[in-house]
Simulated scan of single mutants.
Amino acid sequence: MAVKFVVREKGNPSKPTEPKKWYATAKSSGEISFKDLSNEIAEGSTTVSDTDVLAVLNDLTKLLSRHLEAGEIVRFGDFGSFQVSVKSTGAETEKKFHAGQIIKSKINFRPGNDLRDMLLTLKYTKTY
């Protein structure tokens, strides 16, 4: 199986006078739902049902949110880790900085070794 990509023309925002260039952008080939994923996990087991797996994944999602909100890094073993990061405007001094200057937050995912290794062996197919 290969990752599909399309090619798009883009300019460099920091150098608007330079000619535009063409860049690859990954194209999704579909999606899998939480329920379908739980069915696949259950198919690989003789002791748990898809309902059991779905319940565990739902609880995992709730706990991930709770621990990220508490400022913790959540490590999923070989799968990878999740951590919240923030973006803010600057202040002249540390004392003048306040939480209202935080303008954006996001969740960073750092893949574990197996996922990073998978990226090294990907095949690509150009699509239109």
Rank of each mutant, 00 (worst) to 15 (best):
Y23T: 02
V56N: 00
D52E: 11
G112A: 05
K15W: 04
D52M: 08
L120I: 07
E31W: 04
P19Y: 11
P13I: 07
A24G: 05
G90V: 03
D36T: 05
T93Q: 09
R8H: 13
K62E: 15
V3E: 00
L68G: 02
K15L: 12
N113R: 13
G11S: 14
L115D: 00
F34S: 06
N58C: 06
G112I: 00
V86Y: 10
T89G: 12
S28F: 06
D36H: 12
E9F: 08
F34V: 08
T47E: 14
G80H: 02
A99V: 08
S45I: 07
I73L: 10
T25A: 13
V6D: 10
K106S: 03
S29F: 05
D78I: 00
E9M: 11
S14P: 05
E9C: 08
V7G: 02
L57S: 07
I32K: 01
P111V: 01
E72W: 02
T93V: 04
K95C: 02
K96C: 02
K15Y: 08
K126Y: 03
E72G: 05
T61Y: 11
S85P: 00
T125Q: 15
K21A: 13
V56C: 05
F79I: 02
T89F: 07
G77N: 04
N39C: 10
I32T: 06
N12K: 09
